[in-house]
Design a protein around this nucleic acid. Structure first.
Lengths: 258, 258
DNA sequence: TCAAAAGTGTTCAATGTACACCCATGC
DNA sequence: GCATGGGTGTACATTGAACACTTTTGA
C-alpha cells in the first residue's frame, strides 16, 4: 500500500509502520573512479539526509531496506549489509525548526505526540552499486535525490553524518573480508578497472603489480583470451568473475591485505 | 523506577519502555579455562533465554544494555559491544504456548494487543566478564540465572540461539582487532594464564612459544620482576597490562593473527 | 615516433610456523 | 630424583613491499 503523497504518509503511516524504529540506508555508488553516496534534499530547504524509511508491520528488516532503496533507485537485488543501530535519545527531530519544516512541507498539523516525532531508533544498512544507470527519485519529503562525492558530503540532518561515516568505515573493513565488485563492474573487465575500483573504495593508492598478483591469486577472477580496445594504448586483457568461487568467498569470507 | 514484580512490569511497562524494541545481551563469562554464557530459565518451565530487557523512554541503548546486565550480575563498567539487530517478524512469541506461559507466570491477562506481545526488534549486545565473583540473579520472569558452558547451550526461546551464535562469532572476530583480557585476568597474570584465555575464547590450540612472542611484541603487556608461585613447578613470570597502550589499541584497533 | 597506459618479475624484509630441549619447583 | 609445567631460540617457508623496464596502440 504505497503512499501517494506526503500528507497521506504522515496521517496513515501510523497504522502501517512500526513506531520508534526506522531504517537509514547508505547507498554507495561507484563509477569511473568515483565513489559517491546517495543523498536527499528536503523540500524547500538546504537540509540533506540519507535515504530512509520505516518498517511495515509484517516486513523483515532487509526487505524494508531493499524497498526503501528500490523506491529511490529502481534497483533490485541490492546486496545490503546491516552495520549498526543508532539509538541516542534525541538523535532525530531534536530541533523545533526541523519539526516545523516537516509540518510545512507535509501540510499536516503534528502534535508533539505524532508518531513521526517520537524517539526513533534507526537501523543502518549500506550497499554499493554502479550508479551510472541509476536515476534517483526524491521521496515525498524531498525535492532532490542525487549522488554526492564521499569527500564532499555536506552537513546532514540528525545523526546522519555519523551514520554515513560508520558505513564508510564498515565498507572499507568489509572489503578485506568479502569480495566486492560483482555488481560494480561490467561482466568483462580489465585489471586496471578493478584496480581503480579498489583504490577508489579504499581511498588510497595500491601498487599495480602487487595488486594484480593478489587479486588473481585469490582465484575469484579469471583471465579471458580477449582484450579490450582502449584507444591509443596497449589493449588490456579482459577478466571475469568466477561466480562459484565469488559466492563461496561471500559466504565464508576471505583474507586480503593491501 | 524499578519494577517490583512481574505483574507490575507487565502492566506498567507499557508507559516506561519503547515499544517494538528490546535488547538482548550475550554475557560471556571466563574463568579457569572455561567460557560460559549467562542464561535465564523461565519460571516453572524448561525454557531458557538470554538476559534481555527493554529500553526506557529516555535511555540510550548502551545504558539500557548495561542496566540489564547490571540487574542480573551486579556488574558495573561492562564493556559492551553492539553486534547485530534482529528483526524477523515473528521472532518472538510466535507460539501460543509461550504467550500462555508468560500470562501464567505474570498472573496478568494479556490480550493479543499487549505491548509485550507485539512484534519486537531486538538489538544484540555482547560482553565478556570474569564470572567467578558474579552472583547471577534471576529476573521477574525467571527462577534461575546461571552460567552455561558455551558448548552446552540448550535450545533457547525465540531466536536466541541465533543471537548467541552470532555473538560468539563477533567475539572471536573482535579478538583479532581489539585487545581483550583487562577485565578477565587478575591485575598481575602469567603468560600461561593469558595463553589459556585466548585458547579458550578462540576454542583452539595456540602454540605456546609463538603466542608469547606475538602477545609480548604487541607491547600491550609488560613483564614484571616477579614470579608467581604455583606449587611443584617452575614459577612463571608475572605480567601486567600497559593501560595506556591497551586503551590506545581499544580505540584504534590492532591486527593479530594466530 | 611519440605519448600513454598495460604487462610483467625480482629482491629483500618481515612475519608466520613448526618444532625440542633445558630449567625450576615441591613432593 | 622425578613429575609437571615454564621458559626460550632457530630454521624454514610464506607473504608483503618496493621497485623499472618493455610492449602495445593509435594518433
Amino acid at each position: 500500500m504505497p503512499q501517494h503523497n506526503a500528507t497521506e504518509f504522515i496521517k496513515k503511516g501510523e497504522k502501517e509502520y512500526l513506531h520508534h524504529l526506522s531504517i537509514d540506508c547508505v547507498l554507495f555508488g561507484y563509477h569511473d573512479r568515483h565513489l559517491k553516496v546517495l543523498l536527499l534534499k528536503w523540500k524547500d530547504a538546504e537540509k540533506w539526509s540519507l535515504p530512509g524509511g520505516f518498517i511495515r508491520l509484517d516486513e523483515n528488516l532487509e526487505q524494508a531496506a531493499t524497498r526503501i532503496l528500490n523506491e529511490r533507485t529502481g534497483l533490485d537485488e541490492i546486496f545490503l549489509q546491516q552495520f549498526q543501530t543508532f539509538g541516542e535519545p534525541g538523535r532525530s527531530y531534536r530541533s523545533k525548526e526541523d519539526v516545523a519544516h516537516l509540518s510545512t512541507i507535509t501540510n499536516a498539523a503534528m502534535g508533539p505526540d505524532h508518531w513521526l516525532l517520537k524517539r526513533t531508533v534507526s537501523i543502518g544498512y549500506y550497499a554499493v552499486t554502479e550508479y551510472s544507470k541509476v536515476n534517483p527519485q526524491p521521496d515525498h519529503l524531498s525535492d532532490e535525490c542525487t549522488w554526492c562525492e564521499i569527500d564532499a558530503v555536506p552537513r546532514l540532518i540528525f545523526d546522519h553524518n555519523l551514520i554515513f561515516s560508520e558505513a564508510l568505515k564498515a565498507l572499507r573493513m568489509q572489503i578485506y573480508h568479502q569480495p566486492i565488485g560483482y555488481n560494480l563492474l561490467p561482466e568483462k573487465f580489465t585489471l586496471p578497472e578493478i584496480h581503480d575500483l579498489y583504490e577508489t573504495i579504499l581511498g588510497k593508492a595500491l601498487d599495480r603489480r602487487n595488486f594484480a598478483k593478489k587479486i588473481v591469486s585469490l582465484g575469484l577472477i579469471k583471465k579471458l583470451n580477449e582484450r579490450k580496445s582502449i584507444g591509443a594504448h596497449r589493449s588490456p586483457f579482459l577478466y571475469k568473475f568466477d561466480k562459484r568461487r565469488y559466492d563461496k568467498a561471500l559466504r565464508e569470507g576471505m583474507i586480503l591485505a593491501f
